[in-house]
Amino acid sequence: MSQWTLFEVFIRSKHGLNHKHVGSVHAVDAEMAIENARELYTRRNEGVSIWVTPSASITATASDEKEALFDPSEDKVYRHASFYELPDEVGHM
């Protein structure tokens, strides 16, 4: 067993963007995880903000749930702007 805990790392690369998952680090606590993430994932100015969370605390969808969870939204075309046709004279909306 690992003595140190596995943490998942999320980095905001620029102001205004979402945090994005980049990988993981080992650390004894969240503070150390932030520092280790800084050393590992931002050596080339890649980030302005870091989140870490213990990997064990992440709940993910299972692959066999894909159809049940994501396919139903496939036919909801009315959720997309391009579904609605407007005459040209209306202009940009």
């Binding site: 140190w4 680090v25 080992h26 280790n36 050393e39 590992l40």
Partner: peptide, 11 residues
């Protein structure tokens, strides 16, 4: 003593 420290010390 840990791989993470290799990076940190070198930084």
């Amino acid at each position: 003593p840990a791989l993470e420290e290799e990076l940190a010390l070198m930084n």
